[in-house]
Amino acid sequence: MGELDDYLATLDEAERAVLTGIRQRAQELVPDADQGMSYGMAALRHRGRSLVGLVATRNHLSMFPFSPAVVSAVADDLEGYSLSKGTIRFSVEKALPANIVDRVILLRRAEIDAALD
Rank of each mutant, 00 (worst) to 15 (best):
R58K: 13
M41C: 02
R103I: 15
G21W: 09
G53V: 06
A17K: 15
A95E: 08
A115G: 02
D12S: 06
R25Q: 15
V104E: 06
L44C: 05
D113T: 14
A14M: 01
Y39P: 00
E111K: 05
A73H: 04
H60W: 08
G80C: 12
P65F: 10
S67P: 00
L51Y: 10
D102P: 07
R45W: 10
A17L: 12
I112D: 02
M37H: 06
L96I: 11
A14C: 01
V101T: 11
R103N: 07
L29F: 06
G21M: 05
D77E: 15
V101C: 02
V92R: 04
V92N: 01
H60F: 10
T57Y: 06
M1S: 14
H60S: 10
L44S: 04
V70A: 01
Q24W: 03
A9I: 00
A95N: 01
L61S: 02
A75S: 15
E3I: 11
S84Q: 01
G48E: 11
L78Q: 08
A43E: 04
S67L: 07
S50D: 13
S84K: 07
E79R: 14
V30G: 07
M41V: 08
I105R: 13
G21F: 01
L107G: 15
L54K: 12
M1E: 14
L19G: 09
L51R: 00
Y81N: 03
G86Q: 13
I22F: 11
S67W: 06
R16Y: 10
G86F: 05
G86K: 06
L29Y: 06
G21Q: 07
T87M: 13
Q27S: 02
R16W: 11
A114R: 11
I112H: 04
M63L: 14
G21E: 13
L44Y: 09
I105F: 06
R45D: 03
T10Q: 11
L116A: 06
L44F: 08
D12L: 06
A43R: 13
D102M: 03
D32A: 13
R45M: 13
V55M: 10
L83W: 03
P31T: 01
Q24S: 11
E111S: 07
E28W: 01
Q27Y: 10
A17R: 14
